[in-house]
Every structure is written in C-alpha cells, then in structure tokens.
Design a protein around this nucleic acid. Structure first.
Lengths: 345, 345
DNA sequence: TCCGGCCGCTCGCTAGAATCGAGTGCAGGA
DNA sequence: TCCTGCACTCGATTCTAGCGAGCGGCCGGA
C-alpha cells in the first residue's frame, strides 16, 4: 500500500474531520471544519480540498449537500500518521493495575482483562484463552474411564489446570496410567506442552527397537494426551451491550450478523490470530478486515505473552467511528499488564 | 392467586387471541378473532367479551380503535389452563438425542444444551453450570504453590475436573499434601463434596483430643478445599442474537438493560434458582419475574439433575410474545435429556 | 336477558406538499 | 492561488388530508 501524499493543510483538515466525526457522528461541513482546524483560509477553500480528498477516496459525502464522512482509507491514514494518542491515566489505569495482578489464575485474568477492556473503552472487549500448548508443564495425571477412555489432567504454569478425555484402544489399569504419568512428570516437567509432545513422538519413532512394547503403549497414550490439534481455541467476550449502545437502530441488521459471528467464533478468531505474529497494536478498520460482518466495525488488537511465548491476543471491537486515540493505548497497556500478570512466579 | 373464572367462550377467545398475537405480533381485532375462534357469534359479541376481559386485566388495547393484546395476566391464564402444547418431533428431537449423550464432559453437555435450546426455540438459551458440590468425589489432589497457597484439583463424577486455589497459613511440602490427598481419597471417594466437607469438619471438631496435630492441619486444609462458599455460580448463554432478532428497534433500550443483566449475572441466577426447588417447567411471564429488566421478556426454566440431586437449571429467554406451546415442551425435554446424559456411568 | 346489526367516532398510519437550511459546486474577481 | 457570491440540491421536518381498522353504543328481535 502506497503512503498517501497529501498536503499538510489537507492532513490538518482530515485530522479535524475525523476527530469531529468521531465525537459527533454526523457528516462535517466545510464551515465547522474550518473552525475546528483553525486554518487561515475560507470555507470555499476547505470545500475544494475536501473535493480533492473525496477523489482520493479518503472522505465521502453521503449525498450532495451533506458534509463529509471519513472512509475506511481516511481512518487508516488518520490512524497511521495523524493520530495523537492520549496516554491512559487515572481511575482506569488504577483499575487495570489492581485487577491484573500476578498470582490469579489465567482464567480469572482473562475474564478480568476482557471486562476491563470493555468498561474502559465503552466497547466490546475480547481476550483469547491462552494457548495451553505454549505453557510449561508442571504435572500430568491420567485417570481411567470406561470404554478405553482416559481422563487427562494437565497442570501448567503455576496454577492453571486443564483436562481432556482421550480415546485409546483398550482399558488401562490405574497402575499403568500411574506409571505413564510418573514417566512424563519426571522427564518433561518444566517444558512446554508442544515440546513435550514433539519429544514424545520422537521417542516413539526413534527408539522403536529399543523400548519394549509396554513402554510403547504408554508413549502412545501420552503423545495422544499432549496432542493439541483438538484443542479448541476460544475467547472471552465482554460488553456486547456496548455495541448495542453505539449502534442506532437500522444498524440492527449488521449487529445481528456480528453476534452471529461471535457465536461461530471462527472468523473472529482468525482475525485476532493475525495479530499474533507481530508485536504491538494492530488496527483493522471496517472492511479492511476482510470479513463482511465486520464491515461497519473496527477491531483494535494486541498480542500478549508470557515466558517469552505469545499466548494469545486481546482487543476491542466497536464501530468504525471509535475513538482510536483512546482505544489504541488502552489495548496496548492492557496487553502489557496481562502479559506481566501471566508471567510464571 | 385466585384462579380466573371466565366463561368457556371467553376462554376460547382468549386462547385464539394469544395464539394469533404470538404468531403475528399485532393487536387482534374482533373480526379476526371471530374467524380464528370459529364461535357462532357476531363480532359485536366478541367485542363485548373483549371489553369484559379488558376489565379483568387479561387483555389490553394499545389505544382506542386498535385490537387487543394479551397482558401478562392474560398470558398467565393461557399458559396455566388454555395451552395445547406441541410435542417435539423431527430434526430438533434428533439433534437433542445426538448431542446430549452420556460420556461427554459436563462442560460440553452444558454448552451443547445451551446452544440447542437457543437454536430449536430461536431464542436465547441458558444453562447453569452444575453445582459441583452436589457431585460425587472421585479423586482429589493438592499441589503446593508459593506463598502458602495450595492448588486443589477435584475430579468428580466420571470426567469432570475443577480446580481452585486456597490460601493456607504456611507452606506445605509435597509430601504432606500427598498424604492429605491420600487420606481423603481413601476415606471419601464416592461421596458428594458437601458430604465430604461436613464430615471433615465433624472429624476436626469431635476427634480433637484423639488426632495428632499433624492430622489436624491436614484436615484443616482439606476442609477448606471443600468449602463451597466461594464457588461462583455461573451459566452459559447462547443465542443472544435471537433476542435482537425478535426485538424491533425501540425495544433497544430494554435489550441493553437485559444484556447488562446477563453480564451482571446475579439477577438472572437468582431467578433461575427459584425453579430449583420444584420439579418440572416453570414459566415467568413479563413483570411476574419481579426483575425490571425482564419486564418485556419471559423466561421458561426447568431444573436438571443427576444421581438423584438437582444440579442446576436451564431455560429459554425470549419476548413475552413467545410461542409457549413450543417452548415449554422443548425446555422440558432438554432438561430430561441433559439429566440423563449427566447420569454417572 | 342475551345477541346481532348498524352507525358514528377515534386514532394510528401513510402519502403528498410545503418549507427549511446546511452544505455543495462553480463562476468570476483580487 | 484563494476568496466572495450565488444558485442549486437534497435530506429532514412539519402539516394536512384521507384511509381504514376497530371500537362502543344503541336498538330491535329471539
């Protein structure tokens, strides 16, 4: 994408326009814009410039003789080069500090973060559940169930527990499972789950000749227990209400689709996953996201990490017309604080 | 509450009115009503009867010269004595049968039930998380954390795992905790958590003289681990979208409040708890529930149980103008099937 | 006493016309 | 290059009239 080249005057006007529109939500006319920008020119000049910006697809008139409204590209330019972010202060910051503290369980932290994001930004907050497979194993336990199934309990990372049921070929005795668990606990505690699995699979294949059949089955169960492919990604959403708040009726249709997407989860997860690679805050404006349901909404996300590994992402969903200068730093700092709180003690 | 005494004719008309209004959502006039009911009288007579019903507070005119609309009391009478329920058949039933099967974890079952309720009734579905303290203990495990905290892992009932962190007076060694766990597993496996706790507390007090101090601390940890007072009740909600669907704009205000209540959880939980005592389906119509946020909505709930104990409740939330004759049997059967699926193997 | 037919009235809904005013685009001049 | 002045557009608002569903009341008949 080529950076837009527009005159400084035009930038100033665009900035004023976006800021005004975010505040008021109504098309902005040349007069208002002139006042806001404080430029020493006349309204007619402003109009000329606006016509120019319109040609470049940065602003748009809902109809002749209405003011202008920023387009997605307009917001993009604004966010990329015109924005003046407002650092977070006061009560909101204190709220984050007091709720996102080390020692709480990941589950609680994620729920808190989501709630905080929503309440501070007055929009919907979203935090993905940490990828367990990136977390360090503390202890594993196997319990036999009927029908060859085994209940696996994984304790990771201080105080997070997850459990899953795996299907095996036959019933195992308490004894066998105990031994398998001991084996793994002794050899693999402290390594992250993905590493454990890879190592187990490696062991199964390479040592095939050496290890006895008994050992083989144990390894088999264990590697299956650490298989992360059936782990469902998920997220915690808070403040759907805020979306209703923002959208007047008639956006209702769009909102329904969005709620649908929230329930399907997949699209939303895909989008949020995109921000996992890079560091820092990412902003998806309107149709940029590529998902139709989000056409009228923007998403601001940032990844969070612990122990040097990216575990997930969090973010805020709101109308395209959101206050980016407030939301961006909030998402940024929340991600940092969540990361910090998740750091193993 | 005194049962309403109204003539058979009036009943028939009220029934027709409610059914029609549920279908169309618009005030029903005397002409339409006459057709629907098939009564051998004239529209004028119908009007007379409607005027009578209006006096008794069973129906209501939005304004002169509009048709009639049922009031909460009208719906109540309808639900209590006029309704003809439609037994559930076909695809929906098969969906329930295939998803709510024994062997899945309670967590999955609850999520499925919620989703199914929502999709079958086309309204919001809600299932409370089972009360763990009513479930039978299979195994407990304690893991030491820093700062005198202990991670407690409780395996109940086949395949459900829950974990909590408790704060104790001092750090414990792996060994001590292991012993405490063994002690409990041997003595209490198979009893439900509440019983275990009571028994532990009893043991602590009565045998004080007999047991040594070591045992005393172990009992102390253990009873704290089984304390259910800090267990947060919670529920899984699905299909909020459906509520948007039903409510035209202008109900938007109400909807916001409802979504707020969903996030607060407390009110909703209180309401749903009310149905835990009795068996069978309960219907709360509009303002009957006593919660303002639910004024324009109705809630149909039923408790579910396992192993002879009531574990929670499920239900459906939708507009007062919901199709009770469809929803009631659906809630009923879902509760039964969930109960069955939760039954320990 | 109860019911049906008739009639006049009420009131929300809709369409169309008139008006308003914010804001535009453009021409012409400094 | 920029400003002034002006005609024009078009959504929003207001008002009016007309329509029609539906009600209540009255009266006459079984």
């Amino acid at each position: 994408m080529v950076a837009e080249v527009i005159s400084e005057r035009a930038q100033r006007l665009l900035k004023a326009l976006v800021e005004r529109y975010i505040r008021e939500g109504q098309p902005v006319g040349s007069g208002t814009l002139l006042q806001d920008s404080g430029l020493p020119v006349s309204a007619a000049t402003v109009r000329n410039i606006m016509a120019d910006l319109e040609e470049r697809g940065l602003v748009h008139s809902p109809h002749t003789s209405a003011g202008r409204v920023p387009t997605a590209r307009g917001y993009r330019l604004f966010v990329d080069s015109l924005i003046t972010v407002e650092p977070l202060t006061g009560e909101a910051l204190r709220g984050l500090e007091s709720e996102l503290v080390a020692g709480k369980s990941p589950r609680e932290l994620v729920a808190s973060a989501s709630r905080l994001l929503s309440s501070i930004t007055a929009q919907a907050g979203l935090v993905t559940i940490p990828r367990h497979n990136r977390m360090a194993l503390r202890q594993v336990e196997f319990l036999p169930l009927t029908g060859g199934r085994v209940l696996v309990i994984l304790v990771t990372n201080e105080s997070d527990v997850q459990n899953r049921v795996i299907q095996t070929g036959r019933d195992f005795s308490d004894m066998e499972l105990q031994q398998a668990a001991n084996f793994i606990n002794q050899r693999y505690a402290g390594r992250d789950l993905d590493a454990v699995r890879d190592s187990l699979i490696g062991a199964m294949h390479s040592d095939k000749a050496v290890i006895d059949r008994y050992m083989q089955t144990i390894l088999d169960i264990a590697s299956r227990a650490f298989d992360s492919s059936d782990e469902v990604d998920d997220y915690v959403l808070a403040g759907e209400r805020q979306l209703l708040e923002a959208a007047g009726p008639e956006r209702l249709e769009k909102l329904r689709d969005l709620f649908d997407a929230f329930e399907r989860k997949k699209d939303i997860l895909d989008l949020v996953d995109r921000c996992l690679r890079a560091d820092g805050v990412k902003v998806f404006i309107g149709e940029e996201s590529g998902y139709q349901v989000l056409d009228d909404f923007s998403v601001v996300t940032a990844p969070y990490q612990s122990g040097g590994r990216t575990l997930g992402a969090l973010g805020v969903i709101g109308p395209t017309r959101m206050s980016y200068e407030r939301v961006i730093p909030i998402v940024d700092i929340t991600a940092r604080m969540l990361s910090q709180a998740l750091e193993p003690v």
